[in-house]
Design a protein around this nucleic acid. Structure first.
Ligand SMILES: [Mn+2]
Ligand SMILES: [Mn+2]
Ligand SMILES: [Zn+2]
Ligand SMILES: [Zn+2]
Lengths: 143, 143
DNA sequence: TTACTAATTTGTAATGATTATAAATTAGTA
DNA sequence: TACTAATTTATAATCATTACAAATTAGTAA
């Protein structure tokens, strides 16, 4: 279930994280759009509302949210971190043509093999790569 | 089943990739150690044998092997790519304390959800993060 | 209001893995 | 040996992210 923006604000209050204008905007952005943006996309979009915004603030805020457990950084390509409001664990599909990241449901917990019984698992990630339906149909058109 | 070094050389011949001294050494390194090294680790270790080795050559070679499908680049952290001889698909566990990456068996194909039926999936990745048994026992000792 | 302090934001510089480029070396062939 | 193409090398460039210190803001008490 997707957390509401109010829920998130509440969570931050509980964790003693002050709610500045910038922090609220970053959080709101992630809560409303769920497009798995890069830090740069967040920065570019929010700059329209907050002309003085600095990219450092975006990075700082994302780090704070990650440490608080409200946001997760998704590493699929080694040169770009995407950000996601944390919900139940789910898989990610990245289209290699348009770059869009799609969520998909997956029962990750059932995957854990016996060979990891002596390991302490802190987080589990599943991602696929390929082509999304939209890009597949575009390729079809050209042919 | 792990491919032998000879198998790999054969594969490259089939794909029309020339076998230089440097390329053989990189491939041999990956085939013998299966420690999921970084490009820099490969470079540093091979430099002992090949004093003139350049880091660019290591990167070039890895790219060629990846394109040929013999090696895969593993992205777990956004700032370091690890390299692995391609075998059957398996999961990776990265210890957040010592950095070691462990293989574990996992039936990734059984995971694909119906919601992705219209997507073309090119590759599937599963990685966990946490603490390995060795590091867990070290924490225990200290307490 | 004013003064003071701590938190936050900002601009700028630094970092570090990877890539681009072009010159130097090597291998293969006639 | 001479020629050509492939490979390697050294060096510089790129670019996302982080480090740092100064500037701004928010909160609080006098
Ligand atoms: Mn997601
Ligand atoms: Mn592996
Ligand atoms: Zn697409
Ligand atoms: Zn460990």
């Amino acid at each position: 279930m997707k957390p509401s923006f109010e829920d998130l604000k509440q969570e931050l209050k509980i964790k003693n994280i002050n709610l500045s204008h910038q922090r609220l905007k970053v959080l709101e952005y992630l809560a409303q759009k769920h497009c798995h943006p890069t830090a740069d996309q967040i920065f570019t979009d929010l700059q329209k509302d907050i002309p003085t915004l600095s990219k450092t603030t975006v990075y700082n805020t994302l780090r704070i949210m990650i440490d608080a457990g409200l946001v997760s950084g998704i590493t699929i390509e080694d040169h770009e971190t995407r950000y996601d409001i944390v919900t139940e664990s789910h898989g990610h599909f990245k289209c290699e043509s348009c770059g869009t990241i799609f969520d998909f449901p997956i029962d990750i917990d059932s995957l854990v093999p016996g060979s990891l019984s002596n390991f302490k698992i802190n987080n589990k990630n599943v991602y696929f790569k390929g082509l999304c339906p939209r890009c597949l149909s575009k390729i079809h058109e050209i042919k």
